[in-house]
Amino acid sequence: MIRVKWAFLKEVMLRMGFTEEWVSLVLRCISTVSYVVTINGSRGNVFKPTRGLRQGDPLNHFLFLICSEGLSSLIRLTTKEGSIKGVKTSKRRPTISHLLFADDCILFGEVIEK
């Protein structure tokens, strides 16, 4: 299950240069959903999610890529600040802090004792 906070998606889209109007339209598309659970033919209460992307939504793939870019940027910033440290495959190679593929994220790090 994808648990994307809509505020995070909004902030990433704005920082990527999307206009306020476009971001607002996208957020309305993903946040106006509501669900009803039916048990034994009886309809339950209506509830509205406060985060997440719906399975099967045609926008999901693009929105997930935008969120992945936001996560990647945060990891790079944290690495640059020295809060986390990636690993090197050899002395002359760059440091690897994370790899993203589809909906998977692998984090590489070194334990820093203080």
Rank of each mutant, 00 (worst) to 15 (best):
S73H: 10
K91D: 06
V23G: 10
K88L: 04
G70E: 02
K88P: 04
T78I: 03
I112G: 08
S68G: 12
S24G: 14
N60H: 11
V111Q: 08
F108D: 05
K114W: 12
K91P: 04
L65R: 05
E20G: 04
T79Y: 01
S90H: 09
K88M: 08
T50M: 09
E11A: 15
S97Q: 01
R92G: 14
K88V: 06
G17C: 06
G86Y: 00
T95D: 03
V23I: 09
S73A: 13
F62Q: 08
F64S: 10
I2L: 14
F101M: 00
I66W: 10
I66Q: 07
E11N: 14
W22S: 11
S83M: 09
K114S: 13
M16D: 12
T32E: 10
K5W: 13
S72F: 04
V36D: 06
D57G: 09
I75F: 09
T89Y: 02
T79S: 10
G109S: 12
Y35L: 15
T38H: 15
T19A: 11
T79D: 00
W22H: 09
K91I: 02
V46H: 07
T78Q: 02
W22M: 09
I30N: 06
H98V: 03
F108I: 05
G56T: 06
V12R: 12
R28F: 07
T79P: 00
K10P: 08
K91N: 04
